[in-house]
Design a protein around this nucleic acid. Structure first.
Length: 607
DNA sequence: GTAGGGTTAG
């Protein structure tokens, strides 16, 4: 029997030689399975090969081999189901499982835990529950593997942790995997406190601790942003001797970064005697959020130390370029992405769209967006936010409609993007139509942010009374962002009475917002109520707080210069003022009249 | 011969 008969010649030669040889050997052996050395019945070698193929991503070859097997037992079926799961072909895994049951092959604990892993990945609760039923039917409630897989599936697919906890409680003797699966269930759904509660219980019951339990416990601290608890667990990691385990160290590094302790993160990073790509990515990502310039330095350091960046690295580096609005650098990074063939990665392409938009090149955003072979909700949303920020409301609206036509279900965030774009482009009626459709067609309940967008939409267009009526009709108490949107509209359209009311509401909810005092005092000043004005100013001085100075930045000859009003930045200032003069000239040409009143009052004593 | 939990992006 020739192996080549199984596959086309081209396919056969595409297989790595080491596999090709073993395949040849295995086929020769199975062909001689009537020799006394090999057992009759399903081929053990073929099953091994199915696993071998799947591990190397050669799932099609595994399937061909499976189909050629004259007899298939439960082990062969399970190898095939697990193979599909490990190659992320979950629906195939499920189809295979169903076919196996239909063929009358009785599943064992291996089969059920493999099938459950597929259900978890597909978030298919009904399939998972079916497997649970089969586990009970076939008397496999005692299998630790099945129970742990059931917990994992329920924790991932259910709205609450109740079902996973129920399975957990029914396990007589829990092992380390049972505990960590439960903690992971809580932590991955954002309930770090729940995860830490289980971790504490694990310590109280003196369950076996291993690196897995510590890395997830650290992750739980990170998710609640608790530096204190994180530090405590870090000490426990050292006490238990897991401080040389790389995933544990990486999660600790991530904890320091996300808790905003960059100097501690940096120190910890330099003390680590082993580092992998995740270590570098974690640090780069941590710096990207708080100090983008430094994150780019770390990136170049990483490359000089011989690490090759992956999708995660590039996503953070691209975001850093976006934060800094450095087009030239962003273009180079994009070049690196294409050069390494990573431009097909969805999340990375989304980051590139965002980067070009934030660096001012919306046409490049659109180019990347158009060339994507598959797009998710984030891709469409990012593109719409970009259009909105550039004032292209019509394009954003068209994109939204195109997205709906392509069958993507909108969420609150994409509605915020399109509403904000409508707002900035004065497309009031379109925006209101989307707001109605969101509630009517998609059953999305508007939250504070959405109401804030619609108030802004009406307010900017001068329909301030309508905006106020909308606020009055809200089914819950409006927060300061909603009142803030109304206040902005009152200021722009010179409505002192409604403006005072809005400002009072904002101050009730956020008494420390100095900007609101500035706006309120300016309203009094505009009305000539100097006594009230003086009271406001006195209040602000009493608070001792400062209004954050408005910072601007500009890219001149591949350098980004950041500055505030009246800044003197040394010799480079002449470049900046040169470009600013040009911009001001263009703005005046376009008929722009600056709102100098507020500027004077802002500067007087608030900066 | 087949099965498990942890760390990085959006």
């Amino acid at each position: 029997m020739s192996t080549k008969r199984l596959l086309s010649t081209a396919d056969f030669h595409a297989i790595p030689p080491i596999i090709r040889n073993s395949l040849q050997w295995a086929h020769n052996s199975t062909a001689q399975s009537n020799t006394p050395f090999l057992p009759k019945g399903p081929s053990v070698l073929a099953t091994n090969l199915i696993k071998s193929y799947s591990e190397r991503g050669l799932i099609k070859e595994a399937r061909i081999l499976f189909d050629e097997m004259p007899e298939r037992d439960v082990v062969a079926w399970t190898a095939m189901i697990a193979g599909y799961t490990s190659c992320n072909h979950y629906s195939h895994a499920w189809a295979m499982f169903c076919e196996m049951v239909r063929n009358g092959v009785e599943p064992n604990a291996f089969t059920l835990s493999s099938a459950l892993k597929g259900c978890k990945s597909m978030k298919a609760l009904s399939y998972g529950a079916l497997v649970h039923g089969l586990a009970i039917k076939h008397g496999m409630k005692e299998s630790m593997y099945v129970n742990n897989a059931l917990m994992d599936m329920y924790a991932t697919c259910c709205v609450s942790m109740d079902e996973a906890c129920m399975v957990f409680q029914e396990i007589d003797v829990k092992n380390a995997v049972s505990w960590t699966t439960l903690i992971t269930g809580y932590t991955h759904r954002g309930d770090g406190y729940g995860g830490l509660r289980v971790f504490r219980q694990m310590l109280l019951e003196e369950a076996e601790l291993n690196p897995f339990s510590f890395s997830i416990a650290v992750r739980a601290c990170t998710s609640i942003g608790s530096y204190t608890l994180g530090k405590l667990i870090h000490s426990a990691v050292i006490t238990h001797g897991f401080d040389t385990n790389l995933p544990v160290m990486n999660s600790i590094l991530d904890m320091y970064c996300r808790c905003g302790c960059l100097s501690e993160a940096n120190q910890y990073f330099h003390e680590m005697n082993e580092k992998d790509l995740i270590t570098w990515n974690t640090l780069i990502t941590g710096y990207e959020r708080l100090d983008s310039t430094e994150s780019l330095h770390i990136f170049s350091q990483m490359e000089s130390e011989g690490f090759s960046p992956n999708c995660f690295t590039f996503t953070s580096v691209t975001a850093a370029c976006a934060n800094l609005a450095v087009l030239n650098c962003g273009q180079q990074v994009h070049g690196g992405i294409v050069h390494r063939g990573l431009d097909g990665n969805l999340a990375l392409a989304n980051a590139v769209i965002d980067m070009y938009a934030k660096c001012g090149s919306i046409s490049d955003s659109r180019k990347v967006f158009s060339e994507m072979t598959c797009r998710d909700l984030v891709s469409w949303t990012t593109m719409m936010i970009g259009y909105g920020a550039h004032g292209y409301g019509k394009e954003a609206v068209e994109l939204f409609d195109e997205m709906i036509r392509s069958g993507i279900r909108p969420d609150k965030i994409v509605y915020m993007a399109v509403l904000s774009a409508c707002s900035h482009a004065g497309l009031v009626d379109e925006g209101l139509r989307y707001f109605k459709s969101m509630v009517g067609d998609y059953n999305i309940t508007p939250n504070q942010e959405i109401y804030g967008c619609v108030v802004d939409l009406l307010g900017r267009a001068g329909r301030v009374e309508e905006a106020y009526e909308l606020i009055e009709s809200m089914p819950f108490k409006p927060d300061e962002s909603v009142w803030g949107a109304l206040l902005g509209a009152c200021k722009a359209h010179k409505l002192p009475n409604l403006g005072k009311l809005a400002a009072r509401r904002v101050l009730d909810l956020r008494p420390n917002m100095v900007g609101t005092y500035v706006m309120l005092s300016n309203i009094y000043a505009a009305e000539g109520k100097w006594g009230e004005y003086a009271n406001m100013r006195k209040l602000m001085r009493g608070m001792g707080s400062k209004k954050e100075a408005g910072r601007s930045w500009i890219e001149v000859r591949d350098q980004v210069y950041s500055f505030v009003v009246g800044d003197k930045m040394g010799s480079h200032i002449k470049w900046v003022y040169g470009v600013l003069d040009l911009l001001i000239w263009h703005m005046k040409e376009a008929g722009y009249v600056p709102d100098l009143d507020c500027l004077i009052h802002d500067q007087e004593d608030a900066t």
